[in-house]
Design a protein around this nucleic acid. Structure first.
Length: 869
RNA sequence: GGGCGCAUAGCUCAGCGGGAGAGCACUCGGUUUACACCCGAGCGGUCGCAGGUUCGAAUCCUGCUGCGCCCA
């Protein structure tokens, strides 16, 4: 029946792809660097080239898209810049696995061929996520898509490395680092995840007789590399042993007993074995006491000490060493299982092996201080602000950063070593030294090193490009709070350093983590992962996005389940159907609305509500309150526009003439406003509907709504709310009396004029399914509805027996509510401390409530008394 | 071990000094001319526990219990 071109149902799958291609083809997302508009920039935290879209991405992308789409509509030159990072370890792992399938290792290919192979892999399989972003509707500027291994970005990496090197903020040092024996590379602290694992604690006696000493360890095999035993200098138990030597079991090697204040005498026996090459604390002890460092494993974690354990993996060597010690009577105690903290590689979950090794480091202190200061002095604001503390805790206590990785895929360290131990760092336009004996450092840089440059390198740095001038600093960086340290801290450090102290972003928005319906973390092993692609297929992009945005309360995680997405899909459908109704009834978007005084109460009420919705959505957007703004929109569309205004509009349109025309204009105006407000969150359905409503090109480039600035009509609102209450009470009465919802009931209203609702009788009649009283009308039942202006009495002809029991139950319930209210109010007013100390307006309000409750009680009691027995 | 956060309706969460809210779920009724992905009406909470501050506490403070996260 609707006389519109709109299909009867909203079917996202049928139109989303085409709409998206249309937007891209129209160039809506391509930022114009020559524009006079103020810039608004978001760089996408680059997803991993090996990755595919998960719910965390979907949430983050929804946020960024909503922010940029709104700003674009507000007249900003909005740039949302996409791209990917090269993910050194992950990508190398993927390609090595592929090679392994062919029976090859990367060493069989050699470095150059291997890197070629990675590029081939990227061309064929990499960047799946980019297509998935299109399905989500991401309004990114594809013309500016970047990859961290691109020439320009690589140049940025080399440039900043050289600068840091020359500023002595990059150095090379031999230290204990986190080593992944599977990836065979160093990891930074942040790439190590700790968990409480079951292991063993073995107590071993070193030396014999009175001079022996017992130490405990969870990594027994490391005793092969012990070069001392340490005790606390004040520990009377061992004071006589300090300076002596004991024989290391199994090897017989003699090692000293040293005194070190960092040993905790309370822990275990108070004596610790010292393995400087395989433990960070021991390394420090070794340094203080000038102990040798014995490396006992190779890069795969295989024992290299000549003897019975040589060639064993560390986890095979551990029980073998314990067994040998046990055999020699050296094991004093064994505790198994023993729960202790173990570090794991964040990429492959292998237990990290602390390893002495020569690596490149960033001296972070001056950089991290600047990164902290930018937030401290408000140049960059963190949302929600509570998380700033966590940021400070991190950047203010940051350790130097290991940036070299023993990989082939990545930015190679631009340092050459000469035949006479020369070390030359080469800048981007410099020729590396050549000749006999010169070689480049074989390692590459941590992926986060290039990712940290992302906000500047993508805009063209180190060149002074127009993009950089126009779009830097960026406006917002959005990411999950779990990777605050990865993205935010590093981008801040490098951005500030490279851009002379200009912060890389004005705002940092940190969203929560996605969880399942029970609030549990999603994980493959739990089997509770929800695939956003599945939702995109089944519910559409808009529903997926709305669900995510609606769950995004600042600082807190969100639980997701299919029901949420179904609810959002229902919301889109509701919007669709409401729009079909409006359009089929001739809703229009006029240049100017009819004069306000020619409009009805309902018209003014919904226009005022739409106006305040605009203000509310605006301030919520500014505060990154996505959940609340979604709720506000949902409530307005469903509970105000659909449930009430559309129903009232039916009555007004039925009047015909100017009234109907004005109603069509209001219907269209409000719908237009709502569609534009919703567009940043649900771009697809709003696009189709808005084009149908306005006939214009695209809501993507429409103006963002602004409040009309007309003072709200409080009287109209009061009367509409009175009408609503009256209708609801009649419906309640009908339901209690078992009257079918569709059945029309003859009714006589009185007191309507006194309540100021004379103009609304037809609305009440229509929405409460009433008919005018005719001859033979019998007022078999009646109800009273107290309103602000007066009480309206409704007499109904139920043409049958009144359900007295139901009526008594209803009235009794009403009485109970009123009595409770009265008791509460009187308790307060009877307390002189309350009347003395509470603000006058509060006391007045309670008095008013008390009086209303008292009146209501009298009224309801009278009704109850009048009921037949 | 250090730090942080959370405990409000069956579930997921808002509210954070003056009348306990939302979505979903649930119950009842429904071919009402946009919509059953819907309409109408309902049910449901001593706001974790114990103290304290206040005329007044879900809301502020202290302690406890339970859960979660980050760091070591």
């Amino acid at each position: 029946m609707p006389s519109t071109d709109l299909p009867a149902a909203w079917e996202p799958a049928a139109v989303e792809a085409e709409l998206y291609q249309g937007w891209v083809a129209a160039g809506y997302f391509t930022a114009d660097v020559t524009s006079d508009k103020p810039p608004y920039t978001i760089v996408l935290p680059p997803p991993n080239v090996t990755g595919s879209l998960h719910m965390g991405h979907a949430l983050n992308h929804t946020v960024m898209d909503a922010l940029t789409r709104r700003r674009r509509m507000q007249g900003f030159e909005a740039l949302w810049l996409p791209g990917m990072d090269h993910a050194g370890i992950a990508t190398q792992n993927v390609v090595e696995r592929q090679l392994a399938g062919e029976g090859l290792s990367r060493h069989d290919l050699g470095r150059e061929k291997f890197v070629e192979r990675v590029w081939e892999w990227k061309a064929e399989y990499g960047g799946k996520i980019l297509d998935q972003m299109r399905r989500l509707g991401d309004g990114v500027d594809w013309s500016r898509e970047r990859f961290t291994m691109d020439d320009g970005l690589s140049r940025a990496v080399q440039t900043v490395f050289k600068r840091l090197f020359d500023d002595e903020l990059i150095y090379r040092a031999e230290r204990i680092i986190n080593w992944c024996p599977r990836c065979r590379t160093a990891l930074s602290d942040i790439e190590v995840e700790h968990s409480e694992d079951e292991g063993e604690l073995v107590s071993i006696r070193y030396g014999d007789g009175a001079d022996s000493i017992v130490v405990a360890t969870t990594r027994a095999e490391t005793m092969l590399g012990d070069t001392a035993v340490a005790v606390h200098p004040d520990d009377v138990r061992y004071r006589h042993l300090i300076g002596t030597e004991v024989a290391l079991p199994l090897t017989g090697r003699r090692i000293p007993i040293v005194a070190d204040a960092h040993v905790d005498p309370e822990f275990g026996t108070g004596a610790v074995k010292v393995t400087p090459a395989h433990d960070p604390n021991d390394f420090e002890i070794g340094r203080r006491h000038d102990l040798p460092s014995l490396t006992i494993m190779d890069e795969r974690g295989v024992i290299t000490v000549p003897g019975p354990f040589e060639g064993l993996d560390r986890f095979e060597a551990r029980p073998a060493v314990v067994a040998a010690l046990r055999e020699g009577g050296r094991v004093v105690a064994e505790k198994r299982p023993y729960l202790h903290s173990v570090g794991h590689c964040s990429r492959c979950d292998t237990a990290v092996e602390p390893r002495l090794s020569l690596q490149w480091w960033v001296k972070v202190e001056p950089l991290s201080r600047a990164a902290g200061d930018a937030v401290r002095d408000g140049r960059t604001k963190v949302h929600p602000p509570e998380l700033a503390k966590r940021y400070f805790d991190w950047v203010d206590n940051m350790h130097d950063w290991t940036i070299s990785r023993q990989l082939w895929w990545g930015h190679r360290i631009p340092v050459w070593y000469g035949p006479n131990d020369e070390v030359v760092c080469v800048g981007p336009d410099e020729q590396p030294p050549s000749g006999e004996g010169w070689r480049q450092d074989p390692d590459v840089l941590d992926t986060w090193f290039s990712a940290g440059l992302w906000p500047i390198s993508t805009l063209g740095w180190p060149e002074s490009t127009p993009d950089l001038a126009k779009f830097y600093p960026t406006s917002v960086l959005s990411t999950g709070y779990d990777i605050l340290f990865f993205w935010v801290a590093r981008m801040m450090m490098f951005g500030l350093y490279a851009m002379d102290g200009k912060q890389p972003f004005d705002h940092v928005y940190l969203h929560g983590l996605i969880r399942d319906a029970q609030g549990k973390k999603m994980s493959k092993s739990r089997g509770n992962v929800i695939d956003p692609l599945d939702w995109l297929d089944r519910f559409g992009a808009d529903a997926t996005r709305f669900t995510l945005a609606r769950g995004a309360n600042p600082g807190s995680d969100m639980a997701l389940a299919e029901e949420w997405a179904a609810g959002s899909r229902n919301f889109c459908t509701k919007l669709w159907n409401a729009s079909r109704f409006a359009l089929s009834n001739g809703a229009t978007v006029a240049v100017a609305l009819p004069a306000r005084d020619s409009l009805t109460d309902a018209d003014r009420w919904i226009l005022d509500a739409a106006d305040s919705l605009v203000s509310e959505v605006d301030s919520l957007f500014e505060a990154f309150q996505f959940a609340k703004l979604c709720d506000a929109l949902y409530h307005f569309v469903w509970d105000l526009y659909c449930d009430w205004y559309l129903e009232l509009a039916k009555v007004q349109i039925a009047e015909g003439g100017a009234r109907a025309d004005a109603t069509r204009a209001v219907l269209g105006h409000v719908l237009d406003t709502v569609l534009r407000l919703l567009h940043p969150i649900t771009p697809f359905v709003t696009e189709v509907l808005w084009k149908a409503l306005t006939g214009k090109e695209s809501v993507v480039i429409a103006d963002w709504p602004v409040p009309a600035g007309v003072p709200a009509d409080a009287d109209a609102r009061r009367r509409v709310e009175g009408v609503q209450k009256l209708i609801t009470e009649i419906r309640r009465f009908r339901a209690d009396q078992g009257v079918k919802p569709g059945q029309r009931v003859a009714a006589r209203l009185s007191g309507v004029d006194e309540a100021g609702l004379a103009a609304h009788v037809s609305a009440v009649t229509s929405l409460a399914r009433l008919t005018a009283p005719e001859d033979g009308f019998t007022a078999g039942a009646s109800l009273e509805v107290p309103l602000v202006g007066g009480t309206v009495t409704v007499e109904l002809d139920l043409s049958g027996a009144v359900d007295v029991a139901a009526e008594r139950k209803r009235l009794t319930k009403d009485l109970g509510v009123a009595e409770k209210e009265l008791a509460q109010c009187e308790a307060k007013l009877g307390n002189p401390k309350f009347t003395d100390k509470a603000p006058a307006d509060v006391v007045d309000k309670i008095r008013t409530r008390r009086d209303a409750a008292a009146t209501e009680i009298t009224r309801v009691q009278a009704r109850l008394a009048a009921l037949p027995a």
